[in-house]
Simulated assay, not measured.
Amino acid sequence: MGKTRSINVELSTEVIQVLESRVASGEYPSTAAAIEAAVRLLVQEDGDADLQAWIETDIVERMADVERGDPLRPADRVFSDLQARHLKTRTKAG
C-alpha cells in the first residue's frame, strides 16, 4: 500500500478477537496486515458495486435498444467506452 503512518482506532471486542485469531493462525503477520486486507476488500467491493450499477443501467438499457430494433454500436465505440471505463476505475482505485 505504499507509505505508512500510524492511527488509533477503537474496535469492538468481537472485531479484535477476529483480528487476533487471524494473526495467531498465521493467516496474517500482524493486525495491521489484516486490517489492510479488509480495506482492500472494501475498495474492491466499491469497484464491484460500480460494475454492477453499470450492468444494471448501461447494459440493460442497451439490450432494450437492441430489442426495439436500434442498431448495434460500432465495435470501435464499444472498445473506447470500455477503455474509458477501465481508466476511470483504475484512477478511482489508485
Results as ranks from 00 to 15, higher is better:
Val60Arg: 12
Ala84Ser: 12
Arg62Gly: 02
Gly47Asp: 02
Glu45Asp: 12
Ser21His: 11
Arg5Leu: 02
Val15Gly: 03
Ile35Tyr: 03
Glu45Arg: 13
Leu41Asn: 13
Gly47Trp: 07
Val78Gly: 01
Leu19Arg: 00
Arg5Ile: 02
Pro29Asn: 09
Tyr28Thr: 06
Val9Met: 13
Ile35Leu: 10
Ile35Glu: 00
Val18Gly: 00
Val39His: 10
Glu61Pro: 00
Asp70Met: 07
Ala75Pro: 08
Gln52Arg: 14
Asp50Lys: 04
Arg22Gly: 13
Ala53Cys: 08
Phe79Cys: 00
Ser25Trp: 04
Ala37Tyr: 14
Arg90Asp: 11
Gly2Thr: 08
Arg5Asp: 04
Arg22Met: 06
Ala64Met: 05
Ala24Met: 05
Thr31Asn: 14
Asp65Val: 01
Arg62Ile: 01
Leu72Ile: 12
Asp76Arg: 03
Ala32Asp: 15
Leu41Lys: 14
Asp50Ile: 04
Ile55Glu: 07
Leu19Gly: 01
Gln52Ile: 11
Ala33Val: 01
Gln83Pro: 00
Phe79Gln: 04
Glu27Lys: 13
Ala32Met: 00
Asp48Glu: 14
Ser12Trp: 06
Lys3Asp: 07
Glu56Val: 03
Ala93Pro: 00
Arg62Asn: 06
Leu41Glu: 15
Leu87Val: 08
Thr57Cys: 08
Lys88Phe: 11
Val60Tyr: 06
Val23Trp: 05
Pro71Cys: 04
Leu87Met: 09
Ala93Val: 08
Leu51Arg: 13
Thr89Gly: 06
Glu14Trp: 01
Ala34Pro: 01
Asn8Gly: 14
Leu11Phe: 03
Tyr28Cys: 11
Arg73Leu: 14
Arg5Val: 02
Arg77Glu: 15
Asn8Gln: 15
Gly2Trp: 04
Leu72Arg: 10
Val23Cys: 05
Glu27Phe: 04
Gln44Gly: 08
Asn8Glu: 15
Asp46Cys: 08
Arg5Thr: 08
Val23Tyr: 09
Val66Tyr: 07
Pro29Lys: 12
Gly69Tyr: 02
Ala34Tyr: 01
Val15Ile: 09
Ala75His: 06
Val15Glu: 12
Asp50Val: 09
Thr57Pro: 02
Lys3Arg: 09
Ser6Pro: 01
Glu10Thr: 15
Ala64Val: 05
Arg22Gln: 14
Gln17Asn: 11
Ile55Pro: 00
Asp76Ser: 10
Arg40Tyr: 12
Glu14His: 03
Gly2Ser: 09
Gly69Leu: 02
Asp70Tyr: 09
Leu41Phe: 13
Asp76Gln: 09
Leu19Cys: 02
Glu10Asn: 14
Thr13Lys: 10
Ile59Thr: 04
Ala84Gln: 09
Arg62Gln: 08
Ala64Gln: 08
Ile55Ser: 01
Met1His: 10
Asn8Thr: 15
Leu82Trp: 02
Ala49Leu: 05
Ser21Glu: 03
Val39Ser: 05
Glu56Gln: 14
Glu36His: 08
Val15Ala: 13
